[in-house]
Computed example of a mutant assay.
Amino acid sequence: MSLAKEPERGEMGSLGELYRAPTLGSLLEMGQWEAAEDKADAIFRELKEHWRDSQEHILETYLNIASSIVSLIHRTKKWLADTLPEDFYALAQGRPAGSDVEELRSWTERVIAAYRRSVSMVEKDSRSSIIRKVQEYIALNPGTVSLQSISAHVFLNPSYLSKVYKLETGEGISEYILQVRMEIAKELLAESPNKIYEISVQLSYQKPSYFIQLFKKHYGMTPQEYRNMLDS
């Protein structure tokens, strides 16, 4: 292992903040970004105040942070070369990020930001997949679907699922179910000989009066008025 310059030796001591729980790596793993930022500040404050001239302590800090970042990136099933394109080859060849505290701090901030972007993309892909499954399930089961049945289908808590769906689409699951049912109602009124109360039951509205109320609120006319308009 080579160092950028000869280390200046003083009385040996160990780093404290780097290993004090919760560690920087554990905070990043839990997605506690503000706490991780505070932890990094504490690590580099200690390094600057007590070990700024110690190449060994700078190297120890680099190796610890690099190891944590590499492990976290691989756990998200991402390649280092894709996540850290600017720093991958230096990491792969074991080259320290810098010979002083400020260079190492700048590198740390850069790789943490890259890791955070990577996590955000993974979470977004995961949420998009959930939304797609929810909408497919509703399309296949418009007359019997409920929040509970959807939650069971995607293996998520109903409350959490509602929050994710609202965050991603800007509307609630019940609003989307209503929209799908009203679109199906229009098709049935136009193409099916079924009576209005039969269509109401088909779409899981046991009270035709409630179905008529919803349809009028959605389209500005009752189901019968809609049929009459088609026939005229």
Rank of each mutant, 00 (worst) to 15 (best):
residue 3 L to V: 13
residue 5 K to F: 09
residue 12 M to Y: 11
residue 16 G to Q: 13
residue 18 L to D: 12
residue 21 A to I: 04
residue 21 A to V: 06
residue 25 G to A: 11
residue 32 Q to G: 02
residue 32 Q to E: 15
residue 36 A to D: 06
residue 40 A to Y: 01
residue 44 F to A: 00
residue 46 E to H: 11
residue 46 E to L: 06
residue 47 L to N: 08
residue 50 H to W: 09
residue 54 S to H: 14
residue 56 E to P: 07
residue 56 E to V: 11
residue 69 I to Q: 00
residue 69 I to K: 00
residue 70 V to E: 08
residue 70 V to G: 02
residue 79 W to E: 13
residue 80 L to M: 08
residue 81 A to S: 14
residue 85 P to W: 08
residue 86 E to K: 07
residue 86 E to N: 09
residue 87 D to F: 07
residue 92 A to T: 02
residue 92 A to Y: 09
residue 93 Q to W: 10
residue 96 P to T: 02
residue 96 P to G: 05
residue 97 A to Y: 01
residue 101 V to M: 02
residue 101 V to P: 11
residue 115 Y to P: 01
residue 115 Y to C: 01
residue 119 V to N: 08
residue 121 M to K: 12
residue 123 E to W: 06
residue 124 K to L: 14
residue 126 S to G: 04
residue 131 I to S: 03
residue 132 R to K: 15
residue 134 V to A: 09
residue 140 L to Q: 15
residue 142 P to C: 10
residue 144 T to W: 03
residue 145 V to Q: 05
residue 148 Q to R: 11
residue 150 I to D: 13
residue 155 F to H: 03
residue 156 L to A: 05
residue 159 S to Q: 14
residue 160 Y to P: 00
residue 161 L to Q: 10
residue 163 K to T: 09
residue 163 K to R: 14
residue 164 V to C: 10
residue 164 V to K: 11
residue 174 S to T: 15
residue 177 I to A: 09
residue 186 K to M: 14
residue 191 E to T: 15
residue 194 N to P: 00
residue 197 Y to M: 01
residue 199 I to M: 07
residue 201 V to M: 02
residue 203 L to R: 01
residue 211 F to R: 08
residue 211 F to T: 01
residue 218 H to I: 02
residue 219 Y to M: 06
residue 221 M to H: 04
residue 225 E to F: 03
